[in-house]
Amino acid sequence: MVSGLSSRGADGRRLPTAVKIVIAGGFGVGKTTMVGTVSETRPLRTEEVLTDESVGVDDVSGVERKKTTTVAMDFGRITMRDEYVLYLFGTPGQERFWFMWDEVALGALGAVVLADTRRLADCFPSVDYFERRGTPFIVAVNCFEGEQAFDLAEIQTALNLGPNVPVMLCDARSLESCKKVLIDLILHAMKVRGLAPEPQQA
């Protein structure tokens, strides 16, 4: 415990450790769908209310006059053995809310950048963001156009990704597909962080 604060509940049991994965990508690319597909509970939504000044709301009187925006993030939960709990956060679609991204990317195990082949460029800002931040990420191409065989190497080039960034196809509505994306992300994150991948079961 870094904070030195109590990490035990009323009954003295140790609290689990929470980890998170970020699901990013352009508008309407399937972020909320992916969160919902894997979440064990109904996905929830967390909101931040912004004012024009974004900070400094210290008296109530002026609040109504300020223009406010709500930034929402959808998130879901998966409970793991060994007292770990995994949260998945779908980033807000609009790129101008970078401060929310910072909050959600800090301490993330890794990120999935969802891409739509019809609008590949939409995922550039997400790719740039995680590259700059050094967050391990993979690109998952959401197959809106059906099970077509996309040339993943071509997408890799189009996105100007390094050869070490995995690119894969997915269907955000399919549990098996989302599981594979997330497991591949974790394996990639281990590699990026210099951890040996788990031994193959023979």
Partner: peptide, 14 residues
Amino acid sequence: IRLYKAVIDGLRAL
């Protein structure tokens, strides 16, 4: 590494 293994196992079990 235990964290990563637990997460992978948890995902596989979904």
